Simulated scan of single mutants.
Amino acid sequence: MAKPSDKTLVVLRFSALGDVAMCVPVLLALKRTHPHLNLIFVTKGRFLPVIAAIPGVRVIPLESENGNSGLPRLFSLGFQIFRTNPAAVADLHNVLRTKLLRVMPGSWLTPWRHLDKGRAEKAALTREENKVFAPLMSGHERSAEVFRKLGYSLQVEASDVLPARSLPEGINLGAEEAKLIGLAPFAAHAGKSYPPALVEELLGLLSGKADCNILLFGGGKKETDLFSRWESQYPNVQSMAGRFSMSEELAVISNLELMISMDSGNGHLAAMFGVPVVSVWGVTHPYAGFAPFGQPDSNSLTADREQFPLVPTSVYGNTYPEGYEQAIASVNPAQIAGKVAELLRQ
């Protein structure tokens, strides 16, 4: 068997979209510090466009060609990984499937390090009683620590972002001289989604600006239907839902002047291109370590903790006490519009 190459490092992060996007600045910092490294990144196939633009990174899809990602595919993937004779494996996911890969035959010949999720301190941050309300290590730093444990020094810097991509030919995003503002008002859980009535109020404040075009990002039938209605109801508003491939949508995001996002993947996608992000938080909080990369704390607009003292109620926004689904509404549209105006003046 060939000796392991000191230039090949396998990185595992299967999902989710926002978490994969959070890996980008860390990988860029790693490549900047260790340009000789060849990286193999394993993730879901649909996330390939997020990673593909990083020079010297090869992406292996989690799924087989027929879309299977079950145990047979997992073991096939493991053999595929070990055939590359990597110097080490960085597990940035640390879930059951990556743990199974660690115990496959041959895996013990390769150094492995995995992500420390900080479960204890996150539990302390989100519990109802004796809450420890203090900022935790960012997700970016947690990933960087994995590489440091493998012996690869790196320091993630604000400049570790991707360049803007060329827009697809023939795309019409409104007046050419207008500033493009992205708005992704929804998220996977109700406690992280901005109420539609408040989205409409926000659109009323933003869409009247002649020098701005508002681009709506999201998916799902309910969201798409709302976007279509708002597109026809407000000037200078366009829905991006279902119009583009992921690669094309990333190109649009990379050319934004600014993104308004809830605690969701779109904020991380914008941040990996160095786009300013105004993030809006409900039952979650940036103290858990999931703020978009490179953004000042002042860009995170959080729920009123005097009114909702148990925030954050969970790390992912999937659990919260009765009534806390309204916590995000304590960030009012005028507050968001004011922060947007402030950033556009800079």
Rank of each mutant, 00 (worst) to 15 (best):
G18P: 09
Q307K: 15
A175Q: 11
N332D: 12
S143C: 15
L74G: 05
E249F: 01
L203P: 00
Q295E: 08
V237L: 08
G70K: 13
V57Q: 01
A178E: 02
A303D: 07
M22Y: 00
A303M: 05
R127I: 05
H34E: 10
L9N: 04
P235F: 09
E176P: 01
F227L: 10
A144Y: 08
P49D: 00
S138K: 02
P55C: 08
P168T: 11
N318Q: 13
L77W: 01
K117A: 12
V283E: 03
T33C: 11
S298F: 12
E257G: 15
R229T: 14
G242S: 13
V50K: 00
Q326F: 06
D91W: 02
K3F: 04
M240I: 14
Q346T: 14
V315N: 01
K31H: 10
I181P: 01
L12I: 08
G218R: 01
L30E: 06
K222H: 06
A271S: 14
L344D: 04
T33K: 06
A53E: 12
H189F: 14
H114Q: 14
L203F: 03
H268W: 03
A88C: 11
I40C: 07
A187W: 00
M104G: 03
G182Y: 00
G204T: 06
V277D: 01
A53R: 14
R102E: 11
V156F: 06
G294S: 11
Y194H: 07
L216N: 03
L206A: 04
T313S: 09
G282I: 01
D6A: 10
P286R: 02
A178G: 07
R13Q: 09
L198Y: 10
S261Y: 00
S76D: 10
Y194S: 07
V311T: 06
R148K: 13
S298W: 08
G18F: 00
Q233K: 13
A124Y: 08
S330M: 12
A190V: 12
A2R: 12
A291L: 09
S232H: 07
A337C: 11
Y287W: 15
N172V: 05
D19A: 09
A188M: 09
K222A: 14
G106Y: 02
N172C: 07
R32V: 10
A123S: 14
F217N: 01
W108G: 05
S300D: 09
A303W: 00
S143N: 12
M104N: 06
P72N: 04
S69G: 10
V59W: 03
G208W: 00
Q233M: 13
E176I: 08
V132M: 12
E169Q: 13
W281T: 04
S166T: 15
N255K: 05
A144H: 06
G70S: 15
S153I: 03
G219T: 07
E231I: 02
P61H: 07
I253Q: 04
E141I: 14
V315T: 15
G170I: 10
G191Q: 06
G282P: 01
L154N: 02
I336D: 01
A90G: 10
L173F: 08
V331T: 09
A158R: 15
T224L: 05
L115E: 01
V331K: 00
V146L: 06
L28Q: 06
L28I: 15
S314T: 08
G118P: 09
R345V: 13
